[in-house]
Design a protein around this nucleic acid. Structure first.
Lengths: 337, 337
DNA sequence: CTGAAAGCGCTTACAG
DNA sequence: CTGAAAGCGCTTACAG
C-alpha cells in the first residue's frame, strides 16, 4: 500500500540504489543533477515517505531519543520535554517520553524498552545523586545527558539550574528586606536539586555573615511534605521571619500551615519558592520564587546529547541561570515584639 | 555490539527461526517445551533485547502511536497523554508526542514524519470542527481516534467530555443559588469544545425555563481572550449576576476584569469555569468549575485506537462524564438594587 | 555517474 | 517440532 524506494526508482527509470543516493542530501552530489531531479520529482509525485524502520535497521540509527521523566503531569517537566523536542525535531530526531513515577523497577523496564527500540541516546530527568542504574548505563557507553538533576559522581553530562546563584538571590532579597532569621525548608537530600539548594542556602547565609537559621527536611517535593516539615520551622523560637523553600510546592505547603496557624504571609513570615510553578501569580498570596529556565534546560540537554552522539566527549556540567521573581509573599519582617 | 537473535539461537543450539518462535509467546506453543526453556534461558543470560526496528520492518507494525496535541505545556494535555500511555504501554505500544502549536503546516509535517516512522495509528487532540487534513487522513484508512475534541462530520471516532451534562450542572448550580441572569463567555466556535459548550448553555437555560443571557465569544481559550470578550459581558445592563465560561482560562480572564472594575466575585458576580485546571483551589478566588476526566479521555482514546487497529469498525463517539467542583467563585446573586 | 548485490535483524510460510 | 530460505525497505561498499 505504501510507496517504497523501488517504486520511486522505477518511476524515475533508475536503480533503487541511485534513487536512494538522489534522495539523501548527503549523497545527492554523487548523482547526475538531471537524474537527481527526476528522482526527486518522482518521489514527490508519488508522495514517497522513506520507511524509517528500514533505514534505521540498515544505518543502525533510529533517530529516536528516550526521554525519562518522573511524571509528565508534574508541570516542571512538560517545558523541559518541549525544549528538548524543539532541538531534536529539526535535527531529525524524535523524543520518546517515558514516565518512571520514581519507581526504579519501572525505570529499568522503560530503559530496556527504549533500548529495544534502538534509541540513539537518552535525556534523563529522573536522576538521583546516587543512581546505580544510570552509572551502569553510562558505562555501557549509551549516550546520556541528565536534565534538571545531576548525579554526584559527575560521570554523566548534565544540564541543571544554577541552584547556588538562585538561592543566593533569594537570600539577598530577604536580607535586603531586613530579614536575619532566615530558615530553610529543604527538599529531598537524595536529589541534586534538594541537596544543592540546601548547600547553597548554607553558603548564602555565610556569605551574608549570618548564622544559618533552622532547617527542616521534607522527604518529597510535594505540598504534604512541605506541611509536614514546615511544622518544625513554625515551632522554632525565636520564630524565623523568613523561609527559603526547596521548591514551590514545599512553599505552598508552608503557606497552608501559616494560614492554619493564623499567621500572615508576608506580615508574619516571608516565603520564597523555587522553580516558578505555573499560576503562582494568581495565588491568594502570589509566591516570590526563583525561576529556572525549564525550556532551555531541555533544549541544552538535547544539544549536548546530539553532540555526544556524533563525537563522544567527556562529561560536563552545564549550569543555566535562574532569576528571582518578586511577588507578594515576601516583605519586611514583623517589627520586633 | 548488541546481542541478536542469532546469538541467542547459537547459544541455545537451535536455528534462529526456532529461537524466534520460542521467544514469541504467541508462537511458543509450536516449539518443544525443553527447547523453549533453553532459548529463554540463553536469551536472558545474554540480555537479549529484540530489535524492534527489524521486527517492525518484517511485521509491518511499529508498535508506535502518534499523539498530536497543540502544546504539551498547556496543562490540559499532559494527563491525556499519560492516560493514553497507561493503556498503550502494557499493550506494547509507545506514544510519540508531537506539538502542533495550532499550526496547520506544522501539523501536516508532523503527520508525515510520524507516518514515515510507520506509526500504526494516531490519537489526535488538535481537531477542529472542520479539519480537512484529518478528513484526508481518515479516508486513507490510517486508524485515528480523536481525544477531547471531535469533528463535526463524526467520520472519525472520538472520546470527548460530556459538555452538555457538564454545562447543565453548572447552570443548575447557579439557578439553585438564585441566579436568573446567567451569561456565557464562549470559547472558539471552530472547536467542538467551544461550540458544544455554547450549544449546551443555550439548551440548559431553556431547560431551566430561562431566556439565555448575553453571550460573548472569545477567539481563543486563553486569559487575554477572556478579558477581551469579558468586557462586553460587564457592559451589559442589567448586568448578569453569573457567567458560565467556556473554560477555566476564560474564567480567569474574566476574574481579572472583575477585580479591575472593583467588582467582587462572587458578591457581585458568580463565575464558573470548565476543565478544572491545576491549582484552581489555591487561587485568590478559588474557581468553581466542571472537571473533565482528562486521564480517562486519553485512556479510552487509546483503548479505542487499539481496537480499531486490530479490527476496523465504524466511527463512534464516546462521551465521558464530567463533575461540578464547587469552590468559592459562585454564591448567591447580589440583592436586587 | 550508475547498477548489482549484500546485508541490517527479524518473522513466517514452506518442507520435512 | 525444527531447519532452511525468503523477504520486509532501506543503504552502501564495490565494480565498472
Amino acid at each position: 500500500v505504501a510507496v517504497t524506494l523501488s517504486d520511486v526508482a522505477q518511476a524515475a527509470g533508475v536503480h533503487p540504489g541511485t534513487a536512494s543516493r538522489a534522495l539523501n542530501p548527503a549523497t545527492r552530489a554523487r548523482v547526475a543533477p538531471a537524474t537527481a531531479r527526476r528522482v526527486l520529482a518522482a518521489a514527490s509525485r508519488l508522495g514517497y515517505l522513506p520507511n524509517s524502520l528500514a533505514r534505521g535497521l540498515r544505518t543502525r540509527r533510529s533517530y529516536t531519543v528516550g526521554i525519562l521523566i518522573p511524571d509528565l503531569t508534574n508541570p516542571l517537566f512538560p517545558p523541559i520535554v518541549r525544549g528538548a523536542d524543539e532541538v531534536l525535531g529539526p535535527a531529525g530526531y524524535s523524543g520518546l517520553v517515558a514516565n518512571t513515577d520514581n519507581d526504579d523497577t519501572r525505570e529499568e523496564l522503560l530503559f530496556a524498552a527504549l533500548r529495544a527500540r534502538q534509541a540513539d541516546g537518552f535525556i534523563v530527568a529522573t536522576a538521583r545523586r546516587e543512581h546505580p542504574l544510570l552509572d551502569r548505563m553510562a558505562e555501557s557507553n549509551v549516550p546520556i545527558v541528565l536534565a534538571n538533576r545531576a548525579t554526584d559522581n559527575h560521570a554523566i553530562p548534565a544540564v541543571v539550574p544554577d541552584e547556588a546563584a538562585g538561592i543566593r538571590t533569594a537570600v539577598s532579597h530577604l536580607v535586603a528586606l531586613g530579614h536575619r532569621r532566615i530558615a530553610h525548608l529543604a527538599g529531598p537530600q537524595g536529589l541534586s536539586t534538594g541537596h544543592g539548594r540546601y548547600r547553597a542556602y548554607l553558603d548564602a547565609m555565610a556569605g551574608q555573615g549570618l548564622w544559618p537559621g533552622p532547617v527542616a527536611f521534607a522527604d518529597a517535593f510535594a505540598e504534604a511534605a512541605g506541611r509536614a516539615a514546615g511544622v518544625e520551622l513554625l515551632a522554632t523560637r525565636p520564630r524565623p521571619t523568613a523561609v527559603v523553600a526547596g521548591n514551590d510546592l514545599l512553599a505552598i505547603g508552608l503557606l497552608d500551615l501559616l494560614g492554619g496557624a493564623g499567621l500572615d504571609c508576608p506580615g508574619d513570615m516571608s516565603v520564597v519558592g523555587f522553580n516558578d510553578h505555573p499560576m503562582l501569580s494568581r495565588m491568594a498570596t502570589p509566591l516570590t520564587t526563583v525561576r529556572i529556565p525549564q525550556r532551555e534546560i531541555g533544549g541544552e540537554a538535547a544539544r549536548l546529547l546530539l553532540d555526544l552522539m556524533t563525537e563522544p566527549r567527556s562529561a560536563k556540567l552545564l549550569l543555566l541561570p535562574t532569576r528571582l521573581v518578586e511577588r507578594a509573599s515576601t516583605g519586611p519582617p514583623p517589627a520586633a515584639p
